[in-house]
Simulated scan of single mutants.
Amino acid sequence: MSSADLETVPEIDDALFSARGIETGYGELQVLYGVDVDVRDDEIVLVFGPNGAGKSTLMKALYGRLPLWDGTTEIDGTDLSEVRSNRMIEHGVGFVPQTENVFPNLTVSENLDIGAIHTEDPASRRAELFELFPRLEERLEQTAETLSGGERQMLAMARALMPDPDLLFIDEPSAGLAPQLIERTFEHIARIRDDGTAVLMIEQNVNAALSVADRGYVLDMGENRFEADAETIRESERIRDLYLGK
């Protein structure tokens, strides 16, 4: 794939989730300028780029935490453009924010109970998630504040997965984790995809994220800069020189 191909952001016909022409910002400050993103139902899609590129703003806009100034979002043909974050799970979209993603004073069990509000069979769903995160079953009666960083991240993902969403947004899953836990975290994310939930994630540890991602978008100065499959991104000297620090 040439550099010219990398700069083309194609529209994917069989996408589960699509965002088109996303523009938004804060007050009078515009941050995003016509960003496009697609996620198929069997993909992990990575969004990365330099600090200040607008990655977290994009995640907030796509999840309804920030109003769109222009553009549209949809999942499986349903328009989400005006759906606020507290209604997203009703449309099959879950979210794991970077911070404040668990209730620290509540037990692991109580955190999962909160995640189960929109779950038809909570006990069965818990059992499925304990297969993915067995450590949580061992920690059920501990408060979240007593968990390790890796265990908290497991709990945050499990709580968001309790309603069995079609798509999970994850913001900086490796942030604050010890190096030995980062690989395990991305292994969990790969399992989430393999178990039937598509993933859109923002991550600064790009090389680690590319080990499990299927495709990636580079966001720079609030605009799409490059889009390609993960292998092409890893092999692109241009992307490596500009964004991967090698």
Rank of each mutant, 00 (worst) to 15 (best):
A116E: 06
F48H: 15
D76Q: 03
M157E: 01
G21K: 05
D14R: 10
M88D: 00
E74D: 02
I170H: 05
L16W: 00
S236L: 04
S18D: 02
G52W: 06
F133P: 03
T73P: 12
Y33R: 14
G92E: 05
S174N: 01
S81D: 01
Y33E: 11
E231Y: 03
L62D: 00
I44C: 15
V108H: 10
L68F: 08
I202V: 13
L140F: 06
R193A: 05
L106I: 04
P97W: 06
F133A: 07
G77W: 10
D171A: 08
Q180W: 04
P134V: 02
I89R: 10
D38A: 15
A175N: 08
I12D: 01
G64F: 01
E74M: 12
A158C: 02
L167G: 00
D171W: 04
V218P: 01
F169S: 10
K246Y: 04
S124V: 06
H188A: 10
E131M: 13
D171H: 02
I12S: 02
S56V: 00
G71L: 03
E120K: 15
R234H: 07
E235L: 07
L16T: 01
G49A: 04
E11G: 11
E74G: 14
P97R: 14
E90S: 15
E28L: 14
I182M: 14
D38I: 01
L168P: 00
V83M: 06
T99F: 09
G222K: 06
D38L: 09
D220G: 13
M201K: 11
R40Q: 12
S81M: 03
N205R: 15
R215Y: 14
L181W: 10
G149T: 03
G196W: 08
P163M: 14
G71Q: 08
E145T: 05
G71D: 04
S148D: 07
L29N: 14
V96F: 13
H118I: 07
P173F: 13
T8A: 11
L210K: 07
E74N: 10
L167A: 05
H188N: 09
S236N: 02
L6S: 03
Y33A: 09
M162K: 10
D121R: 13
S18T: 10
G94V: 00
G245M: 07
M157L: 09
D76H: 04
Q30V: 11
S56D: 05
T24M: 14
I117K: 15
D36Q: 12
R159E: 13
G222P: 00
I117Y: 15
I239L: 14
T78S: 12
T57P: 11
D195S: 15
D220Y: 05
R240C: 01
A53H: 05
R152F: 08
G54P: 04
V9S: 12
T99A: 14
L62R: 01
A144Y: 04
R234N: 12
R84F: 08
R139D: 05
A208Y: 07
L46N: 00
